[in-house]
Design a protein around this nucleic acid. Structure first.
Lengths: 252, 252
DNA sequence: CGAGCGGTTGAGGCATGTCAAGAGTTGTGG
DNA sequence: CCACAACTCTTGACATGCCTCAACCGCTCG
């Protein structure tokens, strides 16, 4: 494992505060692997042998039932996934596949469990990480149950904009079919929903999204920290550039 | 706080393995309150001051957006809720209200956080509890995204039956409007879905549910441990009494 | 160049929501 | 204890959001 990644991992909230000794022994027991795109890393139902850490690339977490399939999350560097299954020594509830060429650190669950038994700081960090994951799924469930497809998409657009420091335009970070699955709709429905967003202040052109009327879009999506995440507090307190000027700046 | 409840709480996975001393000081700092039905205990968005423990009665966890509202869980004795918010010292993502006369133990979050800093066993138990909650929400999300309304209802019926030791008949533990909200549909849709379950092996009469053809119902709902919970492993390995005999035994 | 795949569009269908009315039940105050 | 109000649940008629199926376009990559 290269030093630069080691440092990145060490810097994760999960590992930041543990003792150096425990960190070293954890990572020494770990595997560092690079996978091509579309490789299934984890099969739901299988037993959790390793905590996964994405250091490069991206990973889709999804689940199936009968012939259906749905995306539950996309994991980007640097972060961990399926911590909960490792802890409970239980079967994975989700499958995972790489979306692109992806580098993963695999930490054996046994070492993990052994470590937070002896390192209180690591135990605390684990608690914190789990609580965060929990809250994030609760938000996803609320999004699904309280909003319709178009509202979910509108809120997604606003979240992405927020993650781009409030930029009026941005590029979709994932394929549309994947986004559709994440939002819980079909690709066809997503396509139509995107078109219909024009009426409420956003325009989509290929992978590019432009917010043409932020106020209207916010009035429609009514984003809230209790669904859209801690970073998103409506636009209260912000004063972001509006539409066309910046839109043209990035070439539309 | 009465001894019998103290013992029940002490027996919870969360508190079972901590030191007696820490348990005593935690519960001494706690409040014991009894609430009438329909009292709002928690408002989403508010800060998490107390871990709640239901010792008698039942509590609905729900969330709202605009004028909509949805039920995310129903908590029954003896168990805790909103642990995650207490840990992160973050706003609640869900509101909570009593469904009936309900007795709650309130443990101040500050004491909670102080305690698992000094009691490794308690920290471990917290990790385990959180991991369980996380997995349970993930299952809820999968249920919502992978199954349609009727399939969710059918699976719910099978879960309830399972919880009643595989009984062919049981009584719905919650109001239908609440069940509808939990399943993510309207009461009207639930009503029709219940009627339509007759075609796939279950009959509903008022609050009573009878499984008339377990095989058919399972073929339809295709329950799986990865959505319906660890207790539910299809009917593999079981050999349960079938329909009419037991149905009549409970009076239908 | 052709196959395959992602995305879009259209036509049509079905599941679920909405609105309204009525039966049955529960709770409440006189 | 009754009468009335409020509420749950059901049912019907209707609306609509989203899905399904099919065709087509444009790209990418053998």
């Amino acid at each position: 494992m290269r030093d630069s990644e080691l440092a990145d991992i060490r810097n994760l909230p999960l590992f930041r505060s543990m003792t150096e000794q425990n960190f070293v022994s954890l990572t020494r027991a770990a595997y560092d692997q690079t996978f091509p795109p579309q490789v299934k890393l984890i099969e739901e139902g299988a037993m959790a042998d390793f905590l996964h850490i994405v250091v490069e690339g991206s990973v889709e977490l999804f689940a199936g039932w009968r012939d259906r399939e749905t995306t539950l999350a996309v994991v980007r560097p640097v972060s961990t996934f399926i911590l909960a299954a490792c802890i409970k020594d239980a079967p994975y509830l989700m499958s995972a596949r790489t979306l692109e060429k992806t580098r993963i650190i695999l930490v054996p669950s046994v070492d993990l469990r052994a470590t937070f038994r002896i390192d209180p700081e690591f135990a605390m960090a684990t608690i914190s990480e789990l609580a965060m994951s929990y809250r994030s799924v609760v938000r996803h469930a609320k999004d699904l149950k309280l909003r319709n497809a178009r509202e979910r998409l509108a809120a997604y657009v606003l979240r992405q904009s927020q993650m781009a420091n409030g930029a009026v335009g941005f590029v979709l970070p994932i394929e549309k079919r994947l986004l559709a699955s994440f939002l819980g709709i079909t690709p066809e429905s997503l396509s139509r929903a995107m078109k219909s967003l024009q009426e409420v202040g956003a325009k989509v052109d290929g992978q590019r999204v432009i917010i043409t009327d932020r106020k209207a879009l916010e009035a429609y999506a009514q984003p809230t920290a209790l669904i859209d995440g801690p970073e998103y507090e409506g636009s209260a307190g912000f004063d972001l550039p509006d539409a066309r000027a910046e839109a043209e700046a990035i070439g539309l």
